[in-house]
Amino acid sequence: MHNLGFALDGAWRVLLAGLLLGAGLPVLFAFGIRSLAWADSGGVARPAGRTLGYGLFAVVILGVLLGITFIVATGFGKALSFEHIYPTIVPKH
């Protein structure tokens, strides 16, 4: 059963990436919404809440852009490499 080993190896990587991006980004988004709500509450202006909120939204949008880059790169026969931590587009092996 070589296949089972390969599948489990792939599965935990997908789970990790899924938790990081698929649950992590929505959680940041939720914090962003919470910040905006906090900025408006209590009758006093809280610009920090607004800044923090939009900052968090920006991180989420970067994540989405990464996803789109990946789709486009794959379509053109390229791959995304994370070997320099920040993603770079490389030819597919």
Binding site: R13, V14, F29, A79
Partner: peptide, 23 residues
């Protein structure tokens, strides 16, 4: 709505991650 976003983000991330990893 919050649930919808969580479900859809999970789908997007899992689909993209697995196609990146050849799964």
């Amino acid at each position: 709505p919050a649930q919808g976003m969580a479900a859809q983000s999970s789908s997007a991330a899992v689909i993209l991650a697995s196609s990146h990893l050849g799964f």
